[in-house]
């Protein structure tokens, strides 16, 4: 009697789509909780305390944020982060799109070229950052050496010692690293556009520029929105390139919010303050996601029939 009722309970469980769905969701939910929700919650909490390394803190409300508000280095890092993201993203988009359009043509060694393009993306960031650091070195820079030998300049460029030179240098490194992602993703988007649309447009009298302007670009916008959202998020939270090439220098000129957060929290020992800086990035990231959310909304032409 008892056996049959427990069996029927198991049967009912096995046949319930809701119960099974819940069970199947558990592993993913557990991973998200442990690796995303918990660190985020911990960061939020630390930002509201006065924790230092080696000393558990107490709750101090918004005190950390109040002091950051009057901290000029923090505001400099905000300025740097926004500028870094804006400039690098624009270049990555333009260059990545041009590269994607080129790779979409019938060029010689097509698959080889596509593989080559991916290289900067495959190499570990720290390694390529070290290479850039060496290229930007004030004494051994190959860029300066080439320009001097070519007679274009007469003394070595101080890439990382000057504020604006350093900023430009890290932006260039970031662009170099980010282009493959944009180019390959946009290339995938380009390949979903039916060639017969271009043929139809050719017969309709469109020039190559008009084909891009009226066919390629509008059909690519949904992909562009996704790709650029990701690109902006990656760039905004960038840490490795800066930390290896400049460590935020000279005089904080290249500190991003991510590097400043780390700098204050770990080497500086001010865990709470670092956490507060990290949390201060959240509103910017949410803004970027919201912009892309509206940009990503399905356009009327993508929607199915509504008869």
């Amino acid at each position: 009697m008892a056996k049959s009722s427990s069996q029927s309970l198991l049967d009912r469980f096995n046949n319930s789509a809701n119960a099974l769905g819940l069970v199947f969701m558990l592993p993913a939910a557990a991973i998200l909780l442990v690796f995303l929700t918990y660190p985020l919650g911990l960061g939020l909490w630390l930002g509201l305390t006065d924790t230092k390394i080696g000393r558990p803190g107490v709750f101090i409300g918004l005190e950390n944020y109040r002091s950051l508000f009057n901290d000029s280095v923090f505001w400099l890092s905000v300025f740097n982060t926004i500028g870094y993201t804006a400039v690098a993203s624009v270049f990555k988009f333009v260059l990545g799109l041009i590269l994607a359009l080129l790779l979409n043509q019938n060029i010689a060694l097509k698959s080889f070229m596509r593989a080559i393009i991916l290289l900067p993306w495959i190499v570990p960031t720290t390694l390529s950052a070290i290479a850039f650091w060496w290229m930007y070195d004030s004494q051994f820079s190959i860029i300066s050496w080439v320009l001097v030998k070519a007679g274009l300049i007469d003394h070595y460029i101080d890439f990382l010692g000057d504020r604006w030179n350093a900023r430009i240098s890290v932006v260039v490194a970031n662009i170099w690293r980010g282009i493959p992602f944009v180019a390959i993703s946009l290339l995938a988007g380009l390949q979903t556009i039916s060639p017969s649309l271009y043929e139809a447009a050719t017969i309709d009298g469109a020039t190559p520029w008009q084909r891009f302007r009226f066919i390629t670009y509008p059909l690519l916008t949904p992909i562009i929105a996704i790709v650029m959202t990701f690109s902006v998020l990656f760039t905004f939270t960038d840490f490795q390139l800066i930390y290896v090439i400049t460590r935020g220098g000279p005089v904080n000129a290249t500190h991003l919010m991510a590097t400043l957060s780390f700098q204050r929290a770990i080497p500086g020992g001010q865990l709470a303050e670092g956490a507060a800086i990290a949390m201060a990035m959240v509103p910017f990231l949410i803004a970027a996601i919201l912009i892309s959310f509206f940009g990503l909304q399905r356009r009327a032409w993508q929607q199915g029939s509504k008869d």
């Binding site: 039916s194 009226f214 356009r299």
Partner: peptide, 14 residues
């Protein structure tokens, strides 16, 4: 000339 394609080749965003 004007051409009608097998898959129509209508511009989906127009």
């Amino acid at each position: 000339i004007a051409m009608v394609f097998q898959n129509y080749a209508l511009y989906p965003h127009m």
